[in-house]
Design a protein around this nucleic acid. Structure first.
Lengths: 123, 123
DNA sequence: TTTAAAATGAGAATAGTTATCAAGTTCGAG
DNA sequence: CTCGAACTTGATAACTATTCTCATTTTAAA
């Protein structure tokens, strides 16, 4: 992967926004300071960075993918009322892969957990 | 919800196909025997049935939603090679909701786990 | 039987994302 | 340094999955 100013902007902006933004949300944030970054470039870079393991794509939340600069294993909670996304620590399901591999005999390479409910402010 | 022949076909066909089909896959299956069921009706009925809790929509697999006639709590595994979807029993993460609620103070109403890897035949 | 609510088919519309392609940029070999 | 191949970009077209629109048909309860 070669250096590009646009990719740097995408990654830096994602790092500064702990809100697990969607591509569109990130685009609107980036537009304010860096209107030279096009939407195609944003989507391309998000894919590439996720592919390279530098960021993480979160599927299973609403219709659109969210992105996370934190690539350490952890889970997500989305509030049904305010729509905010929160992190849940790995600890809540620490041996889940081992158990699932034992049960099935499959090789598990990754897994995600998404919780839905009401956050502290909304409940 | 009133009775409709089309809805009956959608539900019955889903029940007979344990493969967790996408809407498009289900459409192609239904088309063979019941070409009178339109795509709009299929999507509408899948939404309604899921809304009513009669079937379950599975998000977070590929780009498109899959549907499951089994509404009991369980998880899913998708094979990275053959694309097949398998069930994983609830037992692999039995106290995950309780732990997550304790950790966060949030009210959790539902959760999903998706595993990725290689199934027994593909590994 | 009447009738209001619900459901339908066909296709238009939308949202999110990916593909195309010509032009500009990066970077390592010479 | 400088040249070229590979990489990246912006603009926009295309695509996919899904939802919406609306005139027509079906359901079901009085």
């Amino acid at each position: 992967m070669n250096y590009s100013r646009q990719r740097e902007v995408v990654l830096d902006t994602l790092k500064q926004n702990v809100i697990h933004p969607t591509a569109e949300k990130l685009y609107s944030i980036i537009q304010i300071e860096y209107p030279e970054v096009s939407k195609a470039t944003l989507y391309r870079n998000l894919s590439q960075l996720a592919e390279a393991g530098i960021i993480k794509k979160i599927d299973g939340l609403e219709n659109s993918a969210h992105f996370d600069h934190n690539t350490c294993l952890h889970y997500h909670f989305i509030c049904e009322k305010c729509g905010k996304v929160f992190d849940i620590s790995e600890g809540v399901a620490h041996d889940v892969v081992q158990k699932a591999e034992q049960e099935t005999g499959f090789k598990i390479n990754s897994h995600e957990i998404v919780f839905h409910g009401l956050c502290r402010d909304c409940k």
